[in-house]
Design a binder for these strands. Structure first.
Lengths: 334, 334
DNA sequence: CTGTTAGCGCTTTCAT
DNA sequence: ATGAAAGCGCTAACAG
């Protein structure tokens, strides 16, 4: 039923080894023989079995990618970067959502390893010791994508979240703002959430401003939580003149809440955030934000992984990509 | 170096077959033996090799998914549905972007087939005879996701795009609109673009309205093209009082262009579209649109695929999921 | 309930 | 430049 390399060999009057050579572009084949083999392949409609090849060669040319939620636009953009580079190097990608749930992440990592992926890209939540263990027992390289482990043991590519937050808040300060609220995400994640909070804090401190814990609310990355947090700020006796949101989505939620209260952005309240998702320039006012190079984070981490898989010498395994503040229309002078 | 089933067998003092049985949850193993084997597995840190298993069993428990661009929010949402159900049935997913390019799609399909996926989910552009050929030579089931082939030969799950468009335009008509423009997408794709155009046309006809070809512009799915198309309509001597956009993103672009011209939505011009992406409720005014159940399209097509892979009897291989008009704030009476 | 034994379809020395 | 043959790690009859 299925045609194998053996069938092709017989059809072409050569040995399996020769067929294998032509299929794998081994130059040690006489052009004439090569031609015969190709013809036989064509005639039989032979399709190499990558599973058998994987077993024999111990390479699958597929990499495992664990992500939280592909329906998140940031993740999707990173995934696109990963895919493009993977494709360029002839790797396929097994994508697995793990929703930032530790147990699911561990399970998924193991499944991927069982499938004999040649490498692993991890984009998830907090990296625990259990993760580190799983990575350690992996015989294939791992790179962290958009995050880092605290000990910086695992190769990674991300941005400097602390500095990105600092830059955002600094912009507000430079515009004369003194009462700056923050809509944060969970502080439990040292690599992202907490880092952004730290950047906020440092910027305030550098400017001699005091951080009032009443001025920071914790959201959940999403639009609605931005609305909610902003609602809280608006009820306070002394309103902030500016708010820094840890994500664009929350910033857009904040903007709408401000507008719904009959106030204007940026005239009454300025809003800035981090990410630069596509939607940032599709809302009015357009969002001023610190761009995170999502596609590149994916692309560069995949590229790094290919080098690791090839056992190339790497000079730098902790890669920090530049961020960029994008001035649009949601920030004004106080 | 790597520990195999044979090592476990020796360690546990049983045969490979027995180890295989316990790993695969075959009930025909004495509890005690099972325990011994599990202990050996634990001690040795054995991880089953799914590639070897795949070769021996001719099943890989992975399905191939070809998509256009994972960074598209609709595609990402569908992908999420696919992944969730795949996960539920213990399948993994190899995701491949093909950007609606025919050649790339064909290439990707073949690669996936070489990898011996147990099934294929296809979400792409126009389905040509070449696609049909590729599907035909596939020994594994295929289902189309969010589209159909013209001959309805391949199992598929999608919505009735024609009717969805009809319903959208009908709503406008019911609100008294008579001059209704359309921002379409390419008419080259019979399953989606052209179908939506047809629905627009039929709704107008049913209402005794005449379709003026000047009232339809072709966009490219995206925000900017919606802006552009709307800009065109606004320059015409007789402006439409309502516009139907084939996608939410274009509708949002149209809304902003209208607003930028100092007009109001919906007071001056009503806007409706199809999709109901997350962003639809994150813009002001919130978008009235016909919801396409993206997650379900993914989930249901994956579910259908599992049945096909199990060779279960299927009553219905052409599945049409319901759409739903979501009334928000971008449509008003004329 | 358990063990033996063929493969699964390919790559990869090693000869020639 | 080509072929022979030994696996890769596992499953699946089959036998007992």
């Amino acid at each position: 039923m299925t045609v194998t390399i053996y069938d092709v060999a017989r059809e072409a009057g050569v040995s399996m080894a020769t067929v294998s050579r032509v299929v794998n572009n081994n130059p040690n084949v006489k052009p004439q023989t090569r031609k015969k083999v190709f013809e036989a392949i064509e005639r039989l409609g032979y399709r190499p079995n990558a599973v058998a090849r994987g077993l024999a060669s111990k390479k699958t040319t597929t990499v495992g990618v664990v992500i939280p939620d592909i329906s998140d636009s940031i993740v999707a953009e990173v995934a696109r970067g990963i895919e493009d580079i993977a494709n360029m190097y002839h790797y396929n990608i097994i994508l697995s959502n793990a929703d930032k749930k530790k147990d699911k992440e561990i399970r998924v990592i193991n499944t991927l390893l069982e499938k004999q992926v040649d490498g692993l890209l991890f984009m998830g939540g907090v990296i625990t010791d259990e993760h580190l263990d799983a990575f350690r027992t992996s015989s294939v390289p791992v790179v962290l994508c958009g995050t880092t482990d605290e000990g910086k043991l695992i190769p990674s590519v991300t941005i400097d979240h602390e500095q990105a937050a600092y830059d955002a808040v600094k912009l507000l300060i430079d515009q004369g703002h003194k009462k700056i609220a923050m809509i944060s995400v969970t502080l439990k994640d040292p690599a992202t959430g907490y880092a952004r909070y730290q950047g906020y804090k440092r910027a305030l401190e550098d400017a001699g401003l005091t951080l009032d814990e009443q001025d920071v609310r914790i959201g959940n990355y999403r639009y609605e939580s931005g609305m909610e947090a902003m609602g809280y700020f608006l009820e306070q006796p002394e309103r902030p003149t500016a708010v820094f949101a840890a994500t664009d989505e929350m910033a857009i939620g904040a903007i709408h809440t401000i507008q719904d209260h009959g106030l204007r952005v940026p005239e009454d309240i300025s809003v800035i955030s981090i990410d630069n998702i596509r939607m940032a320039s599709m809302v009015r006012p357009q969002l001023t934000t610190v761009a995170q190079p999502m596609y590149d984070i994916g692309a560069v981490s995949m590229r790094l992984l290919t080098k690791l898989m090839n056992k190339e010498q790497i000079d730098q395994t902790q890669i920090l990509l530049p961020h960029d503040v994008i001035k649009r229309n949601s920030v004004a002078q106080v």
